[in-house]
């Protein structure tokens, strides 16, 4: 129950934590899945095709 009370008392903290995690996740997706730099593209090539990302 402690966590619920804490969360309810600080909704702004919870949202900020969620926002920070979301931005971090998006950054990873963009780097691993979308950036067209040659080294990244070549290394991630098969995974980009296998996850349906637009690739080359």
């Amino acid at each position: 129950m402690t966590t619920r009370t804490l969360t309810a008392a600080h909704p702004a903290s919870a949202r900020l934590a969620a926002l920070f995690a979301g931005v971090l996740g998006l950054g990873i997706i963009v780097l691993a899945g979308h950036v067209q730099a040659a080294a990244l593209h070549d290394a991630a090539h098969d995974v980009r095709h296998a996850t349906g990302f637009p690739c080359h």
Binding site: L19, A21, L24, G25, G33, V47
Partner: peptide
């Protein structure tokens, strides 16, 4: 092995967005 690493990275990224939501 690069495929394994990048696959884990991609889903870790998705996981972060999923758990945040």
């Amino acid at each position: 092995s690069l495929s394994v690493v990048f696959s884990m990275l991609v889903y870790a990224g998705y996981g972060l967005i999923l758990v945040a939501l």
